[in-house]
């Protein structure tokens, strides 16, 4: 079996241009990043992060970082902790093996309403659980 032949784009973007596209996005990112670091340092390091660790003094509200909040909240709302772990592992495995689960040839997600709905439900679930975790 021969190797996949990579498509050639004769009228495509040339060398400095496609690098500059990335550089532009990096500059936009750096603006946001610098505003955050220079003007809002207390959004990055605040509260209990400014107190040395004390193993004999448990803080009242322990919450993980925002990127772990969704899974943390999921563990809290499912009554059986082990069940929640199993569900999360299955979801994680489905996600990792997505190219082998979703074998449809169609690339355009607009033409695949069922898959599009599934993806949107997953994103809404993640965002929803994160917000719920923040508020609770």
């Amino acid at each position: 079996m021969t190797m996949f032949k990579k498509p050639r784009f004769s009228k495509g973007m040339r060398f400095p241009t496609f690098i500059m596209e990335d550089v532009l996005v990096i500059f936009i990112f750096m603006v946001v990043f610098c505003v955050l670091v220079f003007f809002f340092p207390h959004l990055i390091v605040f509260g209990d992060a400014e107190i040395p660790a004390d193993p004999f003094n448990t803080p009242e509200h322990i919450k993980p970082e925002w990127y772990f909040l969704a899974s943390y909240q999921f563990l809290k709302i499912i009554p059986s902790e082990f069940g929640a772990l199993v569900l999360m592992s299955i979801a994680g495995l489905l996600f990792v093996f997505l190219p082998f689960v979703d074998r449809s040839e169609e690339n355009n997600i607009i033409k695949r309403p069922v898959f599009l709905t599934l993806v949107l439900v997953c994103i809404a679930g993640f965002v929803g659980l994160t917000v719920w975790g923040f508020l609770s």
């Binding site: 209990d48 992060a49 803080p59 919450k63």
Partner: peptide
């Protein structure tokens, strides 16, 4: 997250590392 050894890192890591506990 644990490296600054702050109150936040200590307790957040305590909670997070206890998550695998219910696995038989």
């Amino acid at each position: 997250y644990l490296l600054p050894w702050s109150q936040l890192s200590y307790w957040a890591t305590t909670v997070a590392t206890s998550i695998p506990e219910p696995i038989p």
